[in-house]
């Protein structure tokens, strides 16, 4: 990085650290913070969308649709995250490849499962084995996002399902008295009012999601915990220009500060959002706001 870094063995103090903290490996570590933030930015809305779909399905008056919604919530919430992450990603990837295989290679005569091997034709590989490395990494990242969204979507579905039922019955009755249909009531009365009931549950989920990001490495994405573990590990002079002892404590301390700062920021934003959503609602807090303003 800097010109004086050519021979790190001769450096000490600040200059050594300046060089050490700007190695390619450290830059990858800093980049991984971006990966984590990007994952959160995509996963949160995706999980909310899945959750909304799940909640609507679970509420449906058509029994099969309602069963699907309820089964999704029950199964995903009931399976330990780690088991889900380890099993699901490989299964999901194989599922995609199997579908592509059926479409692209209808003449294939060999079995797809040979012993423990899973073999599809080269054109059905996802991504193609000829694809450049960044395509593989992006694909891995998207599978991770999808997995996170499905897991957290199930929890969000349960929160939203409860929130929809928490909207005061009087509101719905009034809507019915005005002659609104069931779907109009849902769109104009229930959905706008449910958020204030959903937010405490959803904010919990957001916090858990932030803390669950280290699971990324299980999915093959090199996240901040992976780099911290590798960078902090004891480095012997034979394999690096910057030998040092076991520094994992310091790296994990940095992660701790990052996560604490991030959750603190989230809390502040969520508090403001709660105040905003409470305005004009038929809840205790909404009533208090109205009186304070009057």
């Amino acid at each position: 990085m800097f010109a004086f870094c050519t021979d790190p063995g001769t450096l000490d103090g600040l200059a050594w650290f300046a060089c050490y903290l700007t190695t390619g490996k450290h830059l990858a570590f800093y980049g991984a913070f971006g990966t984590v933030l990007l994952l959160l930015a995509i996963t949160a809305p995706a999980a909310l969308l899945l959750g909304f779909g799940g909640a609507v399905a679970a509420r449906s008056r058509i029994p099969p649709v309602s069963w699907i919604g309820k089964a999704y919530i029950a199964i995903v919430r009931g399976v330990p995250d780690i088991a889900f992450f380890l099993f699901f990603v490989i299964a999901l990837d194989q599922g995609f490849e199997w579908i592509r295989h059926k479409i692209r290679c209808p003449d294939w005569d060999q079995p797809i499962r040979q012993g423990s091997d899973f073999i599809v034709c080269a054109e059905a590989k996802l991504p193609l084995s000829t694809a450049p490395q960044w395509v593989h990494e992006t694909y891995g990242f998207l599978v991770a996002v999808l997995t996170f969204a499905i897991v957290f979507g199930a929890f969000a579905a349960n929160v939203l399902y409860g929130a929809m039922r928490a909207v005061p019955r009087a509101q719905v009755e009034t809507a019915e008295a005005y002659g609104l249909t069931r779907s109009q009531t849902f769109r104009r009365i229930i959905v706008p009012q449910m958020w204030v009931y959903a937010l405490p549950g959803l904010s919990n989920l957001w916090m858990v999601l932030i803390k669950a990001t280290p699971l990324l490495f299980l999915l093959g994405v090199e996240d901040i915990v992976y780099w911290a573990r590798d960078l902090g590990g004891t480095k012997t002079p034979q394999f690096t220009d910057y030998p040092h002892g076991d520094w994992r404590m310091w790296y994990f301390l940095a992660l701790l500060v990052f996560y604490l700062a991030f959750t603190k920021l989230s809390e502040t934003v969520l508090d403001r959002l709660m105040t905003r959503l409470t305005r004009g609602q038929a809840t205790l807090a909404g009533e208090a706001q109205r009186k304070a303003g009057a």
Binding site: T23, G24, L27, F239, T240
Partner: peptide
């Protein structure tokens, strides 16, 4: 020394 990640990542 079998496999590791060097200073450049």
């Amino acid at each position: 020394p079998y496999n590791y990640i060097d200073d450049n990542g």
